[in-house]
Amino acid sequence: MDTEALHTERDRSSAPETHGSGAGEGSRSVRVSRQSPRRWSPWRRAGVLGGACAVFLLLLSHFVMQPFLIPSTSMQPALEVGDRVLVNKLAYRFGSEPRRGDVVVFDGTGSFVPEGVAENPVSAAAREGLSALGLAEPSDTDFVKRVVGVGGDRVVCCDKGGRLEVNGVPVDESYLYAGDAASHVPFDIVVPQGTLWVMGDHRSRSRDSRDHLGEPGGGTVPLDRVVGRADWIGWPAGRWSPLPATGAFDRVTAPEGAHG
């Protein structure tokens, strides 16, 4: 028997067909598997990028640096209405405390604003998101003032020259609004430990610690209510600059037994 011929016939019969419907189906399956992945539209990419940027800015403003829109004239001339100051939230996070002369942003709940004052939750959430980006006025419980006295300080107004005294040392407040007195309201207070005595630079237009002397807390602000230190004016562009430091309190020393 011719076994070689038989093997040759088997090989031919088992060879795949290269024509007909089988070939067409095979080529179609190859074409389908090689299709490129669907691409995002430009609008979708822009939306995702915008959302990621918004989340990043919200996290940055919550933990590191928050824009704060100045709503009033109480801190003129250093800060004008409409300025966006950059509040350094890390300034007092690692054991440091506010110093005399610092401009701070704080939550006045319980000191400048009574406890229990609530805002509509929906409007509060919207306002908080916008104010965190410096696009809306801050909450009615948020304030910006200058630290005049820290825990243990005795703050008196006024001496014979009309100046503020801190621990018996007269303070020349060059940052005050032109023509303003140090205070038209006389006071003599020892600042409790763990709190701050704060005042605006435009004294005749500022509701500050003086206005809350007879209320719970005596007008002082607890340290744990301080949001951060105002370090820079970020907007408008023409006012971009650091807040200048003041040497007004350089001669003031802490009273015996206190830190400052």
Rank of each mutant, 00 (worst) to 15 (best):
V105I: 13
V105A: 10
V105L: 03
F106C: 08
F106W: 06
T109I: 13
G110E: 01
F112W: 04
V113F: 03
E115G: 07
E115K: 13
G116I: 10
E119C: 03
E119D: 14
N120D: 14
N120A: 12
P121R: 04
P121N: 04
S123C: 01
S123F: 04
S123T: 14
A125L: 12
R127C: 10
G129W: 02
L133K: 05
G134A: 02
L135D: 09
A136F: 04
S139A: 13
V144Q: 00
R146T: 13
V147G: 06
V148K: 00
V150D: 00
V150T: 08
G151H: 02
G152P: 09
R154G: 02
R154D: 06
V155G: 01
V156F: 13
V156G: 12
C158W: 04
K160V: 09
K160E: 15
K160H: 12
G161A: 14
G161K: 09
L164I: 10
N167D: 13
N167P: 02
G168R: 05
G168K: 09
V169F: 02
V169Y: 01
V169S: 05
P170Q: 06
V171W: 05
D172Y: 02
D172Q: 09
D172W: 01
E173F: 08
D180M: 03
D180K: 04
A181N: 09
A181P: 12
V185R: 15
P186H: 11
F187K: 10
D188P: 10
I189L: 15
V190K: 15
V190M: 13
V190L: 11
G194T: 12
G194P: 08
M199Y: 07
M199T: 01
G200F: 06
D201V: 13
D201K: 08
R205E: 15
R205C: 14
R205K: 14
S206Y: 05
R207V: 15
D208C: 08
S209C: 08
R210W: 09
D211L: 03
L213S: 05
G214C: 07
G214V: 00
P216T: 00
P216I: 00
G217T: 01
G219Q: 03
P222M: 08
D224L: 04
V227S: 07
V227T: 12
R229H: 12
D231M: 11
W232Y: 13
W232L: 15
I233N: 00
I233V: 15
W235L: 11
W235M: 05
A237E: 12
A237M: 09
R239W: 09
W240G: 03
P242A: 14
L243I: 14
A245M: 07
A245Y: 03
T246L: 10
T246R: 06
G247R: 08
G247P: 03
F249D: 05
F249N: 02
